[in-house]
Design a protein around this nucleic acid. Structure first.
Lengths: 211, 211
DNA sequence: GTTTTAATTTTTGTATTCAAATTTTATTAA
DNA sequence: TTAATAAAATTTGAATACAAAAATTAAAAC
């Protein structure tokens, strides 16, 4: 799929919409509809949807037809575990190579989070939350790890998490937990960082499952 | 893609050939050739290749055209790290839920490995090696983790590993290391299991990079 | 003989087409 | 009215067709 092909155009557009939750899970994606919406032939739409199926962002019903991937309760549970595995792993990999620059980047994201919560920009705070965890992964310096992180529906997971954050207290807890992780990393205390991270992620899961 | 569609047929056939290294990395996959080989229309081949692109088993050149994914030296390094992350994580998740049944399954695989090496069935031993690590992942009980394991080109990595095993000594080392991991798991000693696993995987990487 | 250029062939990207399968709507019988 | 059946419409799976792009080959110029 060439960068500038019709199929790539469709792929990017549909993918984006799924990841920002504009296309609700379970929705059927009719080829003809999207063909007209995006203005490319049905073949190109099919190609885009097939690629998304390879990424597991869409599934196919037994009788054919594409559907937006549905996150079940089991999925949420498994994603939480996988997040734990990947983020803890990332910390372990990055600990040796962490620079003070890196720590500053994390602290900056924490500060952004704090200030946005204070000003009532809750969606912005959610962005910062996602960014924080992505940064943890990125600091591992391992592209494949980053890739695994993103192909695991973690963005979808985070979508749900966003909905779960309701009281101001939730945000303040998140903030504290993030900062605890950063502090442990700064002190190069692997065990402490790991514990803080596990605690943080587990709380997120509970919040989602309570929805 | 319906289970029994033409595209699924092509997808499975091409995918298998890539994973068992019958299609060498870097090879161009011409749609027309495969259309005639498999006996389906070019559209179905395109669909299969597009899906494989979503899985990152094939890539696309700047000027279009599909190619079998090439594993670079960096890839090997990153996969080794990712394996470490995923397998250590799997151990952590499974430790609480490990039954004596599970341990027996692992021991059985070790025994198979030993006996095949003794009889000179080195490819069989390689299979058992892969199976051992897959089992570690499976025992986590997390399908998404298993999925991440498989979408990380770890089978391709293992292919290379197979080529790297040369002397009888290599096989005996592998055997010992596997058994050390199982012993630690049996004793529910997480730290020991983790250490044994890291040591085992690191040695594998060195062997590959020496190729 | 080598390098450029032009012509030819191959290969891909995309649209169109068509039949089969599926879903929806309408009709009939209970 | 509800359930069952039949008819119509929609939707997909798959082949074909065709133009544009890329690669290869042949021809010409140096």
């Amino acid at each position: 799929m060439k960068e500038d092909s019709q199929a790539a155009k469709a792929y990017n557009e549909i993918r984006r919409k799924i990841l920002v939750n504009q296309l609700k899970p379970g929705l059927r994606l009719k080829e003809d509809v999207w063909s007209k919406t995006i203005g490319v032939s049905r073949v190109s739409i099919r190609e885009a949807l097939t690629r998304l199926m390879g990424e597991n962002l869409v599934t196919q019903g037994e009788k054919g037809g594409f559907y937006v991937k549905v996150l079940t309760k089991d999925d949420v549970l498994e994603i939480r575990e996988l997040r734990e595995v990947l983020e803890i792993g990332a910390i372990r990999l990055s600990l040796k190579r962490l620079t003070s620059e890196n720590i500053k980047m994390l602290e900056k994201i924490c500060d952004d989070f704090t200030s946005m919560v204070k000003q009532g920009y809750f969606n912005g705070a959610c962005d910062a939350d996602m960014k924080f965890h992505e940064m943890l992964i990125k600091l591992s310096g391992n592209k494949k790890l980053f890739n695994a992180y993103f192909s695991s529906h973690i963005p979808l997971f985070h979508q749900k998490l966003n909905e779960a954050q309701e009281t101001l207290n939730d945000y303040e807890l998140t903030d504290k937990e993030h900062r605890a992780i950063v502090a442990a990393l700064k002190a190069k205390n692997y065990k402490k960082a790991e514990d803080a991270l596990i605690k943080h992620i587990s709380r997120g899961e509970s919040a989602i499952l309570d929805l």
